[in-house]
Simulated assay, not measured.
Amino acid sequence: MTLLQRKRLLIKASPWILLVTLALLWELVCFAFSVPTYLFPAPTDIWASWLEYQGPIMKHATHTLFTTVAGFAIAVIFGVILGVLVGSSPLIYKAVYPLMVGFNSIPKVAFVPVLVVWFGIGTVPAILTAFLISFFPVVVNMATGLATMEPELQDVLRSLGASRLDILRKVALPRSMPYFFASLKVAITLAFVGSVISETVASNVGIGYLMISASSTMDMGLVFAGLVVIAIMGVVMYEMFAFVERRMTGWATRGSDPAF
């Protein structure tokens, strides 16, 4: 095995090496200082809670995944549409962008009571909270990708007879794909935050509800098991979009070698 191959293998294995190291260190600290399980459970306690409650955990996790993906999908649709409008028009950019920044500055948990009044307790507030919290990154990245297109390139394309729609469809949108996929990877993790926040406040199902119920009985092993499940789902969704990104926008990183 060459030096380059060993470097690449080490890079691929590094997340697992770090994860195992942290888990062992976590277990050692809990054991050495006799930390009570109801305060800070060790990884073995979390694993035991998973084995005991894996049925309910999977049921609640499935619901959380559904609400997250639903809210995220709505955010992507509206985010792309608004991002294209904002990025392709200086007038719309100047008019809309300050409003979006102000809206994004409002803590989304403040919307949950309003959504409960409008739609009741349950799935709809969780979906809408996931949408509200993941909408902004998609808009900003799409608008940035379109707005940062070089003026010189646009002048050349116009001189060749390309219309504004041709430039947008054939050059600007493909060029903004790295920005778009970057926004997806950020937005999906935020969507999980939104759905779990809503579930902790206004739901009787989902990982957020499960964690609140478990914390009320001081079952911290189950609470941390819920946190781990959310983290795993977030990583899986993130890696899915990263895989699609590498397939569709490999041209943006051509010639780069992560081993160096």
Rank of each mutant, 00 (worst) to 15 (best):
V35P: 04
I127E: 00
V244C: 04
Q154N: 11
P178E: 08
D219W: 00
N104I: 04
M211C: 03
A242H: 08
K108L: 11
T64A: 04
K12I: 12
V109A: 13
M1W: 13
F40H: 05
Y97V: 12
L10E: 03
P36G: 09
A242K: 12
M211K: 02
I197F: 05
A182Y: 05
K170F: 14
L28V: 11
I197Q: 00
F33G: 01
W251S: 01
A75N: 04
L222P: 01
L51K: 15
P137I: 08
R164F: 00
F135M: 02
R164N: 11
V223R: 02
T68K: 07
V205K: 13
V112Y: 06
I212C: 00
V139K: 00
I127F: 05
V244T: 09
L10H: 08
V138C: 06
G255L: 11
A147R: 14
N104L: 10
R175F: 13
F136S: 02
I106A: 05
G255S: 03
A187V: 08
A259V: 09
A187I: 07
A214K: 02
W16I: 13
A147V: 05
F192N: 01
A242L: 10
L91E: 11
V236I: 15
S183F: 06
S89T: 10
M100Q: 05
I121Q: 07
A70P: 02
A143S: 12
W251I: 07
Y38T: 08
F78D: 00
V156T: 13
S49Q: 09
M58D: 01
F72W: 14
T37L: 10
V84D: 03
A130G: 13
F103L: 15
D45T: 14
A95S: 12
S14T: 13
V138Q: 04
V69K: 04
G250P: 03
A242M: 09
Y179L: 05
V223F: 06
R169W: 13
V228A: 13
E199K: 03
H63M: 12
I121W: 05
Y93V: 00
V96M: 06
L227M: 15
E52N: 13
L22I: 15
G161K: 07
P178M: 09
T37W: 05
I81A: 10
F131V: 05
L3D: 04
L227T: 10
P137V: 08
Q5I: 13
V201W: 11
F119R: 07
I57H: 03
F224Y: 15
V235C: 02
V171T: 11
P174L: 05
I106Y: 07
P151W: 10
V223A: 02
L91R: 15
A162G: 00
A147I: 08
P56F: 08
S215F: 06
F103I: 12
L157I: 02
T144N: 11
I232V: 15
A172P: 01
L39Y: 09
I92Q: 05
F243I: 11
S14Q: 12
N204A: 06
I77K: 09
I106E: 08
T148H: 10
L190I: 07
F66I: 12
I46P: 00
A172D: 10
S216C: 02
L210P: 01
R169F: 09
A252H: 14
G194D: 08
Y38I: 07
V236E: 01
W26A: 06
V196D: 00
L51W: 13
